[in-house]
Design a protein around this nucleic acid. Structure first.
Lengths: 209, 209, 209, 209
DNA sequence: AATGAATGAGCCTTCATTCAT
DNA sequence: GATGAATGAAGGCTCATTCAT
């Protein structure tokens, strides 16, 4: 006799997860501005006011997406990277593998983090920048650890930026290119980065003539 | 006698340049969607209908920005890269230097090309993808030239993607970080890339244990 | 206690009727293009977005007006025209009377149907053409019934076109001319059409019984 | 060195005719509002400011179209209608034939007069109403002449309205229906109006001598 | 005689957001 | 817990019209 076919009463946590899931998808596909709250609500299977009741506003919703996915990515990487006793190249390899795997398994989240969040100004850029800084810092730590005193501090950060940038670029390329696995992408980057860094450590630098 | 309130009655070509200049700036600062035609027109010092008369629509205007800046960047790089007789590392160095210089001197254009154009779907993504593919192809050519038969074709493209990605990342980082010159950024990347590639050429690969 | 400032929170069906009412009036008075959605919304006592939410677009709104009024007019005529056993002149008389009565009681709707809808191209013209064709067909049927085999098929349609055209013309004229009732207009047309001017000269008038 | 391929200096009268020709066509095809001054100028082969210089404004231009075509139609009819000594049925026949012929040979003008001008309010409706009143008056004169004292004055005008209305309707129908000539349409109307449906049933048709 | 350059004003449409139930 | 009803604000685009040459 009762209830329509519509959404049933679910605990708040579940509903929120549905909404953020839907939002990540919409934001990834259409971008922050083009994604409409109507579409997100519909995709989540709830009415618009409920989205506002739980998530506050479009800005807060986007922020929630970024935070959740950034934490998940960081967590996935951190879980794989070993303890400090493990040699730096192995730790880098583990981190890269975890990173590429996450990007491959959550393409929408990766688009949100790598593109949408960084393209739409504050407060979103800052939100994702925090996560990226953590990764850059971690990579810089590994580089410093491997290079000892050979490389200047300023250079260490620049190298970390380059490495992280190439990882981002490869991840997007791998997601868009059929037949490229996360492991292959990680291996390519590891060769690119470590063989190069390996030379740097021996002070065999390339220099313009 | 001092500057007129409104420079009026200029030839079409001049006005169009002013408009695209203003548009690049607005699109870089606010993004494609958030930038309003009102603001662009005001910044260009003309009325909105004139923008539509000359540039057609917001979409066409954005495309015009992308095309103009992509051509300028490509042209700047191509002008510095030497002939085929020059050794590949020198050509890469020349190209990187030209690239970082352009990005540093036209920060708004760089934001439009590297971020905004790639974040707002078709037809913009395709437009800038064409330019990027040319650069990736050029870099892949250099890598192939330097590596001979040592590296497989598939790997060559992946390496080129990684190198271009790290260049993009470094360029944005250099633009945002005070005190980093284009030459420094290019040198860092050259070390990162060439010393690494140098090892690859000797088949001294890193591999997971 | 007196009328509320804004009758709020009405069920959708009621609001839609109010909006179409307002639209018919605006379209009749200013024409399709000159009528503004702002004015229609204001006259309906709602905000513009609600009009779009319920009716879709200006084009759809105009189409809704045409459909509603065409159906109402057709329905009013069909309800008065008797069964097939009734002689054709009496059925024509009943139909004409219903037609002129509707036009007189709904002058705005009549303007929309007879003028605006037919003047602003597709898809509006086609929409009202369907209704008119039904009426022309009905009249042609009566003429054929009355004339037997005496009149050729092609002529029957031409005569029906002429009769319907004169009815339209008279309806508009009656609406604009003070003191002309629907019944008088219908009687004039019945004389004109049925008895014929040739008979009128001999004072052989047709008259409703 | 010399003049571009553009419009050559022509005397004002010629240019004005070109412009009004173009305007009649545009107004007929798109309606008063939808027709743009840009399109009219382009179709006339001149620049927009010249249209304004010669014709004043869109409203004046539309009025000029209406006036010119109304005068032409009236003139064509008046030229064919004989003198007062000719019997009324023959004069009506001559007038109808001239009218249908003009409508068939100038379909755009006919659309402007019969539809566009009457649909877009003052001052256009009044402009064309004057012409129509002249025709109605002429027809009413013929009816009165034929009917003598038998028909009351009020009825005479109503009958004239009906006759003119059916003529308008038939003219549009004939223009839209392939294979219907002006002469056939005039004959049908003459039968309808003069002999009357009652007589048609007895096969007592009126026919041109 | 004729035109390229330029604009004020307005319209359709959409969206994030809230209120009352 | 959940929603149908409703809107303020803003943005893209077009058009009739004029100025300076």
């Amino acid at each position: 006799m009762a209830g329509g076919a519509k959404a049933r009463r679910l605990p708040r946590v579940v509903r929120e997860r549905q909404m953020v899931d839907a939002a990540v998808r919409c934001f990834a596909r259409h971008g922050y501005q083009a994604a409409s709250m109507d579409e997100i609500a519909e995709l989540a299977g709830v009415s618009k006011p409920l989205v506002y009741l739980y998530l506050g506003s479009k800005e807060e919703l986007f922020t929630a997406c970024i935070r959740r996915e950034a934490a998940a990515l960081l967590g996935a990487v951190a879980a794989e990277v070993g303890e400090a006793e493990v040699p730096p190249d192995e730790r880098l390899w583990a981190g890269l593998l975890a990173f590429f795997t996450y990007a491959a398994e959550h393409p929408d989240a990766w688009v949100v983090l790598s593109r949408q969040a960084r393209t739409h100004g504050e407060p979103f850029a800052g939100e994702v920048a925090r996560m990226r800084d953590e990764i850059v810092g971690f990579v810089a730590g590994l580089i410093g650890e491997a290079a000892g005193m050979v490389i200047a501090g300023r250079d260490v950060e620049a190298l970390a930026q380059a490495l992280v940038g190439s990882a981002e670029s490869l991840a997007s390329w791998a997601n868009e290119t059929p037949g490229v696995t996360a492991k292959e992408a990680a291996a390519t980057l590891m060769n690119f980065a470590w063989a190069g860094l390996g030379n740097l450590m021996k002070s065999e630098r390339w220099s313009p003539r």
